[in-house]
């Protein structure tokens, strides 16, 4: 459309008005260079160095090659990835199942759910709540003196000496429940947009042919939704890797409680990758291993993002 820009009338510079394209890009790219790209280069640089304090209390940096990267593959660090993955998957499985169910109900013309606007508003609400506050609310509610602790005790589900936050299993389930609550509304809305895009005549044809609700879902809805499901899963995985706020506040940054240790490492069972990264940066000044961890995270996110890109390209093909 803008090819028709009056390049004929402006001959004094080659670009003419279009030079404003570059000018308007300056703020974005200067900000990106200063606050993202340069820090990224520094992060990569640090990942090849090890820092230690000499007997004279001098800080010395020394090139150490790939030593920091080798440590990533030690049982201690792999445990962090495992912990993070477990927290993610416990929340994600119910999230995707519930979202699929809700989205298919909302989008079903014959079901005609009333007040669907109200329900959508309510289920999306937790997504906007400060994750760290959500974690603290859960911590207080399920703590020994908390309201829900009392409720469960009164109902006879637990005895007075039980402690939700002293067991790995219950702590994991509660943390993942927060993730579930925060994200199932978002996923429902994304899937709904996908289901709404399916041509109604497909559903009608299936009905004429006498297909059951379940068959319609299996044979029509699910295959068409596949690219969106891939998109939801991978973006959720990228978000899951960054899990930090909730386990950080619930375990006071320690990653306790210590549970049965299948890895035979010193890492506690609730400590996530980013909890370790944050502690290395602020507390122990362990820049080398923090750098290597960051680079590995970048690579993992990069690969996952590539799959997002592929799923989006695939979706475009379906549209055309």
């Amino acid at each position: 459309m803008s090819e028709t820009t009056n390049t004929n009338t402006i001959k004094h510079t080659r670009l003419g008005r279009n030079k404003w394209g570059y000018i308007f890009l300056v703020p974005f790219f200067v900000t990106f260079l200063v606050f993202s790209l340069w820090p990224l280069i520094q992060t990569i640089y640090f990942s090849f160095f090890t820092k230690y304090t000499t007997q004279m209390f001098e800080e010395v940096e020394e090139f150490c090659g790939l030593k920091n990267y080798k440590e990533i593959f030690s049982a201690d660090t792999m445990r962090l990835f495992f912990n993070t993955f477990v927290l993610w998957i416990i929340g994600f499985v119910p999230q995707i199942l519930v979202s699929l169910l809700l989205a298919s109900w909302f989008a079903n013309n014959r079901l005609r759910i009333r007040a669907s606007g109200f329900f959508k508003t309510v289920i999306y609400l937790p997504n906007l709540i400060m994750a760290i506050a959500f974690g603290m609310i859960f911590y207080l509610m399920f703590a020994r003196s908390g309201p829900l602790f009392h409720l469960f005790e009164n109902l006879g589900f637990i005895t007075g000496d039980y402690d939700f936050w002293a067991h790995v299993g219950s702590t994991r389930i509660l943390i993942s429940s927060i993730n579930f609550l925060m994200w199932f509304g978002n996923t429902t809305i994304l899937l709904m947009a996908g289901i709404m895009g399916i041509n109604d005549s497909l559903f009608e044809a299936a009905e004429v042919d006498g297909a059951s609700q379940f068959q319609v879902f299996r044979k029509i809805t699910l295959p068409i939704l596949k690219p969106i499901l891939v998109y939801v899963m991978i973006t959720s995985l990228i978000g899951g890797i960054q899990m930090f706020d909730v386990p950080q506040i619930i375990t006071k940054g320690m990653g306790n409680p210590a549970g049965r240790d299948i890895f035979k490492t010193s890492q506690p069972a609730i400590k996530t990758v980013i909890m370790q990264l944050s502690a290395s940066i602020s507390k122990s000044n362990n820049y080398g291993s923090a750098g290597a961890l960051s680079v590995v995270l970048l690579i993992v996110t990069g690969i996952l993002s590539f799959f997002v890109y592929l799923s989006m390209v695939h979706r475009d093909d379906n549209d055309k």
Binding site: Q42, F46, S278, Y287, A290, S294
Partner: peptide, 11 residues
């Protein structure tokens, strides 16, 4: 998709 945490050490 680059998470801010990835560049946070350098930042």
């Amino acid at each position: 998709m680059i998470p801010t945490q990835v560049t946070s050490l350098g930042f």
